[in-house]
Design a protein around this nucleic acid. Structure first.
Lengths: 164, 164
DNA sequence: ATCAATGCAAATAATTTGCAAAAAG
DNA sequence: CTTTTTGCAAATTATTTGCATTGAT
């Protein structure tokens, strides 16, 4: 059920290739900057902000600009390989794990903002039933739980805060 | 299970009073502007934006300013009577139905953005179990489903789009 | 009286966009 | 060669904030 803790490195099998196919289908061009950005995205399984993506991509190719990052992000979400997330902060987060786990959910610690991703067949099934009963057909789903992690419960506060 | 369709008017029993208690506890003052805003919030069960709230509140009291709306909104969310929602738009939405239904969920039509709210004991229970199993204690929960409503499925497009 | 709350207008900050130059196909 | 993509810097837009004034307690 839990999968967050099992992922050792970034497990994005062929995600880059899928994105290349996506570009090709739309007659979009494969530029050095797009490659740097996509390589960056699929070399981590952490969530990131536009600004972080800019920094990391520039380490691969210093010519990447903020504008290009902001122009590439919608392509990534449109391709379905990355998903935009909102954790109530002033900036958006992006999650590169949707290619591998299209229906995963998030639990976030209130204090340290540690995020654990998990999947649940039972919840998926219930979501489907309810959606159908309300006359809809289900397209996407997002479940976010806020809670108190073990450290927070134990010590009353977390050491490493994640912020951002 | 469904409750969205059952609500006739706004069903916010004593929500205003609760907010007054909240203000009192924090030694905050009851101003005409705050009253106009709160009355507005709890006279609807629709989701609204800051801008809409400003417009509506001004109909009750033209002296309400944008700044005061933006300063009051955090008080409303802090009190737990209203919840900030993100539907992937450029502005936030606020949901006044959390006082009456603290654990309700949303299903949104892809095309017309019609929103149906619903509750599910089974999902709540599963969320609790999973959260516990992952070492957290559950504080808040939000489940958002995107789907295709009957009209969209039937006609391929919805008449009234909601936008915003 | 005292201190919080207000409106206004200026500030902030994430994201978007126009445009001329550079690069992909 | 043609058309897309880029970087830059300026623009946009929701939200926040400083400050002098007003109003609640």
């Amino acid at each position: 059920m839990r999968y967050g803790a099992m992922v050792s490195g970034a497990g994005h099998n062929g995600a880059k290739e899928k994105f290349m196919v996506f570009l090709a289908r739309k007659h979009l061009r494969v530029t050095a900057q797009r490659q740097a950005i996509v390589d960056t995205v699929f070399s981590t399984d952490q969530h990131f902000t536009a600004e972080q993506l800019l920094d990391w991509s520039r380490q691969r190719d210093p010519s990447v600009s903020r504008a290009t990052v902001y122009r590439t992000l919608p392509l990534l979400t449109e391709s379905g390989l990355v998903r935009e997330m909102d954790f109530g902060k002033d900036h958006k987060f992006y999650d590169p794990n949707y290619a591998a786990h299209p229906n995963h959910n998030h639990i976030i610690c209130q204090d340290c903002e540690r995020i654990v991703e998990f999947e649940s067949d039972k919840i998926e099934q219930l979501e489907g039933e309810i959606t159908r009963r309300l006359g809809f057909s289900l397209q996407t789903q997002r479940l976010q739980i806020t809670g108190r992690c073990e450290e927070l419960k134990l010590r009353g506060a977390c050491q490493r805060k994640r912020g951002g």
